[in-house]
Design a protein around this nucleic acid. Sequence first.
DNA 1: TTAGGGTTAG
Length: 566
Amino acid sequence: MKNYFKPNLLLSIPSLHFSRQNPKLYFHTNTHFVEQLQHSKTLNSVISIHSNILKIGFLTDTYTTNHLLNAYLRQKEIQNAHQLFDEMSQPNVVSWTSLMAGYINNRKPWVALRLFETMPKDQVLPNSFTFTTAINACSFLADVETGRKIHAHVEILGLKSDLVVCTSLVDMYGKCNDVVEAQKVFDTMVYRNVVSWTSMMVVYVQNALGEEALLLFREFILFMSPNHFMLTSVISACSSLGRLVTGKVTHGAVIRRGYDGNDVVASSLVDMYAKCGCITYSRKVFRLIVNPGVIPFTSMVVGAAKYGQGNLSLDLFEEMIERGIRPNDVTFLGVLHACSHSGLVDIGLEHLNSMYTKHGIVPDAKHYICAVDMLGRLGRLDEAYQLAKTISTEAKEVALLWGSLLSASRSHGRLDLTVEAGKKLLELKQQLAGTYIKDATYAFYAGDMSSCTRGTEIMNVLRELELRMKERGYVSGSKGLVFVDVEEEAEEAIVGLHSEKLALGFSLISMPRGMTIRIMKNLRMCLNCHEAFKLISDVVKRDIVVRDLNRFHHFKDGLCTCKDFW
DNA sequence: TTAGGGTTAG
């Protein structure tokens, strides 16, 4: 703590006058320090105030020291804060909770949990603030087991009526993918506000239950007004469902309420329009952001890449570098995706190499898988295979990797590598066989329906759909029914439509854990859409909400202000 | 009355 003792430039009053024997002076000086700490903006100013507090002997006062502790934490000085905490004669519950929160903000939530366990041994009992902080740590760690234990204590101690504690529980269960438990907490909450409703909506969105999120929102707006946090979640739900019209309506609400200047809201809109096939709208919204940071830029880079506008994607990447915005791992996924789909393999590989050398980002399995895909598409299969063999990652990604190579080998007539990739997929399937459960994942990849457990069944239905479309004059080809997701071929088909008018109306039905089927809007022209949805829902045995695509007729470009559309 | 909850890109 040597750096605490900086020259005292602020106060030079003899310490004699500041003893507790002079309560009035003591109070005023104390208030003075607290005010200074609350307004301290730099580490130097905090150190300086700390030095003055030490001189006058106020460090024995827990209230003042807590302010000092938090001033260090605001400067991200966790080590200094912890040392100060250790030096405190009587740290109270506020000191403990502050330090715990400090560790969470410094990305060390496990230390916060350790402190939480230690507290009672130090004769300090946690309160609702401490519980919220501990639950928050579990949320960061996705540690549902510890979360459940803390939840049990919350029930025992009667903290169940605390709005903030319950909201953090909803959030924690959601981050741990336990939607049922999150919903239980939400349903039994004594009080709810816009934050708790938003938390529950986010739980749904992050667990692929966008429809439930929108239903909850419809309930919410009956008696409360949404803020920008909530509208962002609604937009996010629309993105996940491909609900363009609802997204536009929400955009209208954003503008009417004056939230369109908010970067986070704008980023969610950029993403939503891109996912709904309206890259032009994404660009419009993006260009209205005054100083776009890494997230809106990445949304745009990824969005453009996905819709085949590789050059736009790469231009945006260059622009962000020129502006001094540091890209991250997600940005590079978008860049590699763009190169892959524009045939720019060597440029893509250069970007992959530059990730670490120029930007200090270590590429992970996702980046390498993207590179394998990129090489495979262009027929550089031996390089792709050599690279693929070096990648070790989790099962889901392994399937993606070898599925992609299988598809590329097949289309380039490389029987040897087709067999190799097929073997790898088969091995994986055998490994996973024991873990399959009823109504679980239907992961299947373009050009490889054999890897889907009900692939034949699904293919039969899709063939039937195509047949019926043909009966109504539809000519099969790249336009029309697009049904296989996960792999990019599906997206290429979307790009194949080119016309924004057509791409505007595709509907995306996403189901939990992997399976997604897309139906293009022009299917409606060839086949009764409800019929198509019904057929598919029969196959997958899930309830799919049938969307009335005819509604698209009622909306033209621009914003819809129909409030009750949600 | 110093400490606690929700939003965006893969």
